[in-house]
Amino acid sequence: MIQPRSGRVHTTFGQTIAVTGRLSSINPNLQNIPIRTERGREIRKAFIARDENHLLMSADYSQIELRIVAAMSGDPNMCEAFRKGLDIHTATAAKVFGVDEHAVTKEQRYKAKSVNFGIIYGQGAFGLAENLSISRTEAKEIIDNYKKEFSGIQKYMDDTIAFAREQGYVQTLQGRKRWLRDISSQNFTVRGFAERNAINSPIQGSAADMIKLAMIQIHAALKESTLKSKMVLQVHDELVFDVLREEEEAMKKLIIHCMQNAMPLPYDVPVLAEVGSGANWLEAH
């Protein structure tokens, strides 16, 4: 996979593969480099800066999909939590379990986090119960509380499905569309599949739009400047750069600025990007 001429790997990005609007990559596929296990993460150590004068810099969006959910739905409680800069899962847990934020237990936060992500992937009480190994009754209670406290999100999901049924498509914040031809099917398996896509596609697709716009801005800013550092990888919500050491601070500033401002979200939901650097990708992340 290493090209003799450059001594590097040159991945090929797929711009027309993922239906949601995300990028894909082959040779190597960066999307499936494991990040959940320690051993998998170690593989990132193999990705290094081009020479001693360079280091790798990695920048990624924090909670981007949930921020997009908040901004697309305009749910007051969730938008407020992000605007205040709160830990979103703790804030969610406080509302759902009716306790003070400081009193939220680890377990409650974990459950709230599962609900938050369950929303993105269109999961119901049954899926939540499975994931958390809790009874379906408890899962239902959590979800009911969630719907009450974050009624804007439930409304957004209902509205999105209704929109899809009427128009035949859903769209991202940038107007990227996905057609859902099965959204009105009488067959509930087929319909359910389309409904999950109706919820999930605008969220994932908007996140994809955002990082694409950020890349375009960073690329343009680098071209206009005298900076020699290069953007080299894109994977999920993350960008990786091969940075000349003396440009480290300038690059950090430029990257963060572009990522956070590339696509401002409705309801003033702030966008947060974090950046790190090191000799290899693992250290940088």
């Binding site: 590097r8 790997v9 040159h10 990705f47 290094i48 690329h219």
Partner: peptide, 18 residues
Amino acid sequence: PLIKVLLDMEYEGIRIDT
């Protein structure tokens, strides 16, 4: 506009610690 951005990234590549 992303085409040329990705093109430059693919051209650049990344070094691997073999």
